[in-house]
Design a protein around this nucleic acid. Structure first.
Lengths: 204, 204
DNA sequence: AAGAAAAGTTGAACCAATTCTAAAATTGAG
DNA sequence: CTCAATTTTAGAATTGGTTCAACTTTTCTT
């Protein structure tokens, strides 16, 4: 099963991602030429295109890793949320936002978001949409959990509220990465303020 | 003031926009080559780049016209809104959505949105962000109007609720243009459902 | 272990957006 | 009217992502 070819393939994948990650951060997405990524990864240009359909898909692979980490970190909050609705939401959203710039710069996020709307049917476009859906689901799961505990009224349409909260947060995050001078604390405060009416409405 | 040069300039602007609009619709954004736009507009490639910084800015000019029409259409609703909160919001959002595909195809919207996140500081990127802000303001204005009439509780944070509603709608619209098979009635129904909790909460 | 088939690699060639430069057109001052 | 300054134009050159046909390497078969 694990022949030479398999190992070489995995190794080349890793080398390409490592090279691309470094160059994206050093030179920006546009500044990271395919040729430079190829030579740093010690493969040819053609090989890169054998592994990834286009430049965007390389970035896509990096984004997926980041978002999956975020989803993992969020699971803890859903499992045992803070004891009031506002804090619970703020904690989960806080995890998303605070983790978001670990591996990706704002510029990388901008490019990733742009590509995902530009080419929604590319591998990356589909993967990105799927990740968004999972984040939405996780927020809805938190609300369901809060309903179980009795902190949220049982007659509330949890999935709809989850979508509303995610969509608002996501849009705010998009505006956040579009402005280099924007700061995380202000972003979180703005989202808290927007959620306040909703929190009051769904709380038991 | 209105010398030959002025008139020629305005005329060339118009010819470029007309040619680009036609070609974007016929061949899609990517398919519309600058060379083709130039020859259809009877100007040179260099001239196009003298008038617009890049291909995206040409699309940007078209988007601006469309969104400004939408904003205009929305003014009527804000001035004399339907007599209940849910219908008022649905009517305004309906106008936005129903007008959105008059001049722009889904593919053109995707490109426009992508460029606006990719290059937030380009002329188009800034214009697009400003248009979003105006739409947000218009929704907030509607809520303020409903507060005046006594349909929305006076203690509600109108601007925050306006942002929440706009951001959710916008995100839903992004997902809508990403899927060619998505239909307007389903989009509107989904947004109505998401807004329902909010409408119940802010209504007097 | 040899040879054939399958899978993967390579980089030069291609294509379209953008930049650059020299030539042409328009304007306003004298 | 003439001419120098300024703006605009044309289209060739540049650039960088992507494709493709020839070549290598690995695996499979006997």
């Amino acid at each position: 099963m694990s022949g030479l070819r398999e190992r070489q393939k995995a190794d080349r994948h890793r080398r390409i991602i490592d090279a691309a990650t470094a160059l994206f951060r050093e030179a920006g997405y546009e500044g990271a030429k395919i040729e430079a990524i190829a030579s740093r990864a010690e493969v040819s240009i053609g090989t890169i295109y054998n592994y990834y359909q286009n430049k965007g898909d390389i970035l896509g692979a990096i984004v997926s890793m980041e978002v999956n980490e975020v989803l993992n970190a969020g699971r803890g909050v859903v499992a045992s949320p803070p004891a009031n609705v506002g804090d619970a939401l703020d904690t989960l959203i806080g995890i998303y936002i605070e983790h978001s710039l670990n591996y990706l710069s704002k510029e990388m996020w901008r490019q990733a978001m742009a590509i995902s709307t530009q080419l929604p049917d590319s591998p990356f476009g589909q993967a990105y949409t799927a990740l968004d859906r999972e984040l939405t689901r996780q927020i809805s799961a938190l609300i369901a959990r809060l309903q179980e505990i009795g902190l949220v009224r049982p007659d509330i349409d949890g999935p709809a509220v989850g979508e509303l909260i995610f969509n608002n947060m996501n849009m705010m995050f998009i505006e956040f990465v579009k402005r280099d001078e924007a700061r995380i604390p202000e972003l979180r405060a703005a989202i808290r303020r927007q959620n306040r009416v909703l929190v009051a409405a769904i709380g038991e």
